[in-house]
Design a protein around this nucleic acid. Structure first.
Length: 895
DNA sequence: CTAGGGTTAG
């Protein structure tokens, strides 16, 4: 080997020569670029007899560590035994710490103390750092005591290291105390504390410290900014973030890669894609983190195609690492793109990433999402280091693809080989929800309690969901009240389910209670509560929610607008429907359908037709539900020709195959207009087997028009279909009652009893001065009963003079005629109307709701009443609205 | 002595 250049610098005396050699070797040492250079130098140092000197051995130890060769550092340290001094100890401890060998570093520190050698101020920063990285709280305290014993706690580096250590321990108070007690601080002190606040999630505190640092005249650097950008991103503090970006440009650290990456990440969290693109384009130097941030960021925002494109662009100039590949694979999973998924998967193979558990977990999830469970299982089988996420991803894959048995089997295996975590139980609970299997659900609930996960929020929410889908309101309320913590999802589940269980009081109470817990309703809350207003026709609550929507800034949200139209239509305000509709900037097919249904319910067939045509010309394509709404509207306005025409257009113009509901609408359309024979023919000529709903539609029309022979035939058809729907039995029984066939009535009622079906009792309700009054048929227990009864008798007398005769066929019980008359007077809608007339100002309109269809006699009576008392009465029954006015009804008498 | 990017679920 050729001697290094410095050897030619020899001149006169040996002392000087030795000195030149020393200084030249030291210089060469500090500029060594790689380990082979360093090893060569190392040989020369040994040959020159300097190997054991404190300075040279120390420098060698540090230099090897700097070039990431800590083993050589250790071997140098070993050769200097037994002449070790503090400098050499410090060097080896620092060398090991810098290379992540923290346990070894602490071992040397302990050994050093055993040799009775006093450490100095240079020893501690590394030792403290090792304790910090190992999260060794006990050792950390011991070392801190050593520092105090030596009285060197005011050393800047030691103080900084201690701040960092306590931050990593999560003891921010202690860290802050150390910071406050320091006699002098530098930017590292500030940065350590700021980054500590960040890594513990105290974003506001981090920003606060940043502002304090600026007021103390500290100039922020790349370290500061990387923390502060993270904090702004996490808080979505947009304005602050933009300001900080300005500062970065001003002090000229925008070219730093870490800072640039921090900016990218922050703008993704702000969803400011234009800025992200600009920063990315302007970055002169990019590293793999830059690319990964882009790939992951787009994927997080649902722009999965963009992620894949970026990956393809990246591999042209950069070797992707595990994170680039896994971020892309995740995007492929969301896209369900198996082909690209498999292609990207290849980048993991043969690079040692097969052992990366996280990467494999993502792979399993991707294959499961793409439906290739064999590939998912294969990845799973080849893994030698599985964690709970691995199992969960596989189980989730099976459940999502409806392989429930495999899902459960893997859960059992997981219980043997690994430990289920809370996500595992969430998955199993959702499985029970999907299967509506309450007994298995309760079993899992026991497992949850045994495993001690019951107080976790996501578990509580999953339990709520399970009980909502498989159980009843009682189970749900109990699960809700047992929850230790609740979030918006818990409340939304409760609210949405209470509509489902017809228990609206719970829902309305919940929306107020959640606000007292400091939670603001969100889109899902509103979408849960609005159907409740629709169901109850709770106009006042509906309006309150509408105000609330404006306060929340959700007024332009499409699903919300759609639900509002539905609500106003069910609450009797067609005017507000059109107002909401016109206010909406963006409209989808659901919006138009809601408007068409609203027109249908008010018998405004022509307006429904106009709306349908407007929808077509606005470019929105009608779907099968839109046609149901349209034909329903025609049916309720007697527009038979239009109804039949659009039933054909649905197939010819839009290629939509008619479903059972469409046939039912057409039957209804024909039958309502008295074309009973045609309706029956239509049913018999259908290409599919008609279900009970079609016969039901025909039968209710027969009943209204008194066609007894068809009614009998249809009733038989319905009984033969052996349905479990209460409504049809009630209908058949009512038909027999109308015909006076009381034996048949008893027969039908017995069938219902045997099937455990109960007739829904008729009830009507009316709201007067913020109070809802509910009346059930034949109810005598409500307040003012006597007054209402007398008033009805008085009205009946006046009506008789106008020509009214009670239509006793609507009294569906086998009793004397006088009793029948009484029974008609006890119908809930009549009670509600009479009560309403007595308790509101003369001349003001009434709004009455009924859960079933309005009875024919009550319909006649209401017409008479509006003429006598000169009031408008709006009645909403199960199907539609009836606006009674001066002796007529808007439904034109066919409903 | 201080900084940045990845997984499942409601």
């Amino acid at each position: 080997m050729k001697p290094p250049k410095f050897c030619s610098n020899f001149n006169s005396s040996p002392e000087t020569a030795q000195e030149v050699l020393r200084s030249s070797l030291l210089k060469a040492l500090s500029s060594a670029k790689n380990t082979s250079q360093l090893r060569a130098l190392h040989s020369w140092i040994i040959i020159s007899g300097l190997g054991l000197s404190v300075v040279f051995s120390g420098k060698l130890i540090s230099k090897y560590a700097q070039l990431k060769d800590p083993i050589s550092s250790v071997s140098v340290f070993r050769t200097v035994s037994p002449t070790r001094n503090v400098y050499q100890w410090n060097s080896i401890i620092r060398a090991l710490t810098r290379n992540g060998l923290f346990t070894q570093a602490l071992g040397y520190y302990t050994e050093m103390r055993e040799t009775k050698l006093q450490p100095d101020a240079y020893t501690f920063p590394s030792v403290i750092n090792s304790c910090a990285r190992l999260l060794d709280l006990k050792m950390g305290r011991v070392v801190h005591e050593h520092v105090e014993e030596m009285g060197i706690e005011s050393d800047l580096y030691i103080g900084n290291a201690l701040i960092d250590m306590y931050c990593r321990f999560g003891d921010l108070e202690k860290a802050r105390y150390m910071f406050d007690e320091m006699s002098d601080r530098d930017s590292v002190s500030w940065n350590s504390l700021i980054s500590g606040y960040c890594s513990n999630g105290f974003w506001e505190e981090a920003l606060d410290m940043y502002h304090k640092s600026r007021m103390s005249g500290i100039v922020p650097d790349c370290f500061t900014m990387s923390s502060v950008l993270l904090a702004c991103g996490s808080l979505t503090a947009v304005e602050e973030g933009l300001k900080i970006h300005g500062v970065i440009e001003k002090i000229g650290i925008g070219g730093d890669i870490v800072t640039g990456n921090g900016l990218l990440s922050m703008y993704f969290k702000f969803e400011r894609l234009r800025e992200t693109g600009r920063v990315f384009a302007e970055m002169a130097a990019k590293d793999s983190v830059t690319w990964n941030t882009m790939i992951y960021g787009y994927s997080q925002l649902g722009w999965h195609e963009e992620s894949v494109k970026l990956f393809m662009a990246m591999i042209d100039e950069f070797a992707p690492d595990v994170l680039s590949v896994t971020s892309t694979i995740r995007a492929c999973g969301h896209l369900g793109d198996l082909r690209i998924g498999k292609y990207v998967h290849k980048y993991l193979i043969g690079r040692g990433y097969e052992c990366d558990t996280v990467a494999c977990n993502i792979l399993i999830d991707m294959y499961a999402k793409c439906g290739d469970l064999l590939a998912a299982q294969e990845v799973f089988d080849t893994m030698n280091c599985k964690d709970s996420v691995t199992w969960n991803s596989l189980i989730n894959g099976y459940i999502q693809r409806v392989y429930y048995k495999e899902g459960v089997e893997n859960f059992k295996m997981m219980k043997r080989e690994s430990k289920p975590d809370s996500v595992t139980f969430v998955l199993l609970l959702s499985l029970c929800s999907q299967l509506a299997d309450i007994s298995q659900g309760r079993g899992i609930h026991c497992d949850v309690i045994k495993s001690g996960f019951e107080d976790e929020l996501i578990i509580g929410n999953a339990l709520l969901d399970m009980y909502a889908k498989c159980g009843g309101m009682d189970d749900l309320s109990k699960a809700f009240s047992y929850m230790r913590a609740r979030d918006i999802i818990s409340w939304n589940t409760l609210i949405a389910s209470s509509v489902h269980f017809d228990d609206c009081t719970v829902g309305f109470r919940a929306i107020n209670e959640m606000r007292t817990e400091g939670l603001m309703p969100d889109e899902a809350t509103i979408l849960g509560i609005l159907p409740m207003c629709s169901l109850l026709a709770a106009r006042r609550q509906g309006k309150e929610i509408h105000c609330c929507i404006f306060n929340l800034g959700l007024e332009l949200d499409v699903p919300i607008g759609n639900a509002l139209i539905e609500m106003y239509s069910k609450c009797g305000s067609l005017e507000n429907c059109t107002k909401v509709f016109n206010y909406m900037k963006e409209k989808d097919v659901v919006t138009w359908t809601a408007l068409i249904s609203a027109f249908g319910m008010y018998g405004e067939g022509k307006k429904a037709l106009k709306a349908f045509q407007d929808m077509e010309s606005s470019g929105v394509i009608p779907d099968s539900v839109a046609f149901i709404a349209l034909i329903f509207a025609f049916s309720h306005s007697g527009m038979v020709k239009d109804g039949l025409a659009f039933f054909d257009r649905m197939k010819t113009d839009y290629n939509i195959e008619p479903r059972m509901e469409h046939y039912a609408c057409v039957v209804d359309l024909l039958a309502r207009s008295g074309l009973l024979a045609r309706a029956e023919e239509f049913i018999l000529s259908m290409p599919m087997k008609p279900d009970v709903s079609l016969w039901g539609a025909l039968l209710s029309a027969c009943r209204a028009s008194g066609h007894t022979d068809i009614a009998q035939r249809v009733s038989n058809q319905i009984l033969q279909l052996n349905s479990d729907n209460t409504g049809y039995y009630v209908l058949v029984s009512n038909v027999y009652a109308t015909l006076g066939k009381w034996d048949q009535v008893r027969l039908v009622r017995n069938t219902m009893k045997n099937k455990g079906l109960k007739k829904e009792p008729g009830s009507s309700w009316i709201e007067i001065q913020k109070r809802v009054y509910v009346f059930r048929t034949s109810d005598k227990s409500f307040e003012q009963y006597d007054k209402v009864r007398d008033f009805l008798e008085y009205l009946t007398g006046l009506m008789a003079k106008e020509g009214y005769v009670a239509d006793l066929q609507f009294a569906l019980h086998d009793v004397e005629e006088d009793d029948k008359r009484d029974m008609l007077c006890g119908h809930s809608e009549r009670l509600a109307i009479a009560f309403g007339l007595l308790n509101t100002k003369p001349g003001s309109p009434l709004l009455v709701m009924k859960n079933l269809r309005v009875c024919g006699d009550c319909h006649t009576v209401t017409k008479y009443i509006t003429k006598i008392v000169q009031r408008e009465i709006l009645v909403r029954d199960a199907n539609r609205f009836h606006l009674f006015k001066d002796g007529t009804c808007s439904c034109g008498d066919h409903w």
